[in-house]
Design a protein around this nucleic acid. Sequence first.
DNA 1: GCCGTTTTCGGCCCGACTGTTTTCAGTCG
Length: 577
Amino acid sequence: MSNATIAEILQNIANLLELQNADHFRIVSYQRAAQTIRGYGKELVEIYQTDPAQLLSIPGIGKSLAEKITEIINTGTCQYYQELLGKTEPGLLEIMQLRDVGPKKTKLFYHELGIKNIDQLKQAIQSGKLSELPRMGEKSANKILTAIEDRATFKERILLDEALTIAENLIDYLKQHKACKQVSYAGSLRRRKETIGDIDLLATSDTAKNKTALAEHFLNYPATQRVLARGETKISVLLSNGRQVDLRILQTKSFGAALHYFTGSKEHNIRIRERARKMGLKVNEYGVYQGERWLAGRREEEVFAKVGLPYIEPEMREDQGEIELAEQQKLPKLIQLKDLKGDLQLHSNYTDGNATIADMATAAKAYGLEYMALTDHTKSLYVAGGLMEKQLETQYKKIDALNKQLKGFRILKSAEVDIKKDGSLDIADKTLAKMDSVLVSLHSSFTLDKDKQTKRVIKALENPYTCIFAHPTGRIINQRRPVEFDLEEIIKAAVANHVALEINGQPARLDLHDRHIRLAKSLGAKFVISSDSHSPSSFGYLFFGVAMARRGWLEKQDVLNTMSVDKLLAYFGRKTK
DNA sequence: GCCGTTTTCGGCCCGACTGTTTTCAGTCG
Ligand SMILES: Nc1nc2c(ncn2[C@H]2C[C@H](O)[C@@H](COP(=O)(O)OP(=O)(O)OP(=O)(O)O)O2)c(=O)[nH]1
Ligand SMILES: [Mg+2]
Ligand SMILES: [Mg+2]
Ligand SMILES: [Zn+2]
């Protein structure tokens, strides 16, 4: 029973409760617990098996939720959930997901017109029945019809790199207008979540007239398909690719407060606002107030300062303990992209890369790196033209020659060594001993049972040559589920055997990801951040790897490829020499 | 349903936009 599944059940309970006449705050309790569990590093099953009472130490989980979670762990579901499911028309949940339709309207349609599913809702709109309901009219009904049409397309969340490109293009466009004083993206994109729901933008302008002008400019953006809402300070549009963009336009004196508000997360915002309230202050997107009096809001730092906290980096703002650390002045100094000195996973045209070793080295150097490890695939991965021992050794001679020519840059001998089904490596020790770094990963037998898979990986990590375990869970966002194994046991084996865990920067991988990184760090693990480049233009993926590392609260010293090449070679040399 | 350095009961973040409303509920951020 994964945390994701437990969270899903609690979220479903919250949704079902909305359709009952449940107390709002009770619903919120289920939602908050679901949110916390979704981002929790440790598996709740693990906590429960060690000491069930520990469940109560998780914020937002009390006696009642702990009992339900226990039941879910033991039986896969819980009585309460089943009862709620039993007394709810299943189609109502789908109706409630529609844009501009919430629990109140869903219930109204059901009770007044007996509407049980989207098809019936559509019919009621087309026959004009829906607009006759209290507080409903033509416009509301038509909006719902549009929401039904939009529903099928574009519901998936997008990857971080795609969202970043959309946002940067929009920002370039907004900046072209002279009424635009400041502009930034916010929301989950600024927090660098691995997937992004919508694009949140914030701009400032000085006068009312300029705000209007800037709003007009935004609406003229060529990729805008449809305006969802337009008010004095906030505009929501749908781009032609179906992605929603929310833009807020405020005064420059509110930029910091608005950026803080719009960056979120929602849970973090609520904590900050509760804190302000206890201090006799009020925080909103316009600033920090004492009564009617505006105290601050130009910069984010001021908002934090007014509530007695140091600046908290956006990547940490998830209410997963960052506020407590901030209170104690114990916030980590997060790693930055410029701290990286090398890249320890990338491919050349010896296997499935598209460039020569020399071209990859030139590109890596141009990106600002001092070294790179060439990690072409090994023989088991014949689809990628994986290399045999002999071919690897030939490649290493080539690397020796290249290294003689290169100034201020070093190519390390490595490989992405395949872990076979039995946990052994597919390259002979004699060749492993010639490598500067041995990176291992799974490419097959993803569906072994959990126990076998765990043992298989641990065996590979115990191999004395193994230095790095790459893209550990093997997940590909929106495409492939993570391998089933006991990650906590694997992390412990990695720590015991001095094997670093990779944070793969490919936007569809980001593996390990935020919550696993925090868990691994708490268990004493070391990390490497890799681009896994298959072309010279892909070193930018390091940015996304660093983003994940920051969401995992990592500092420079947690990441091995922040070391100079000599230190790194000495570190791995304990294994390979 | 959760939580507590003034509380074990009584609070629980705060605001924008829309449509249908004559004063605000519903939904969303
Ligand atoms: N104070 C407060 N802020 C909120 C609330 N809902 C949203 N926000 C703020 C914080 C969010 O990060 C920000 C943008 O809202 P979004 O719905 O776009 O969420 P976010 O970007 O975090 O995630 P997403 O990837 O878009 O699903 O607005 C709320 O209920 N209260
Ligand atoms: Mg968003
Ligand atoms: Mg948004
Ligand atoms: Zn490859």
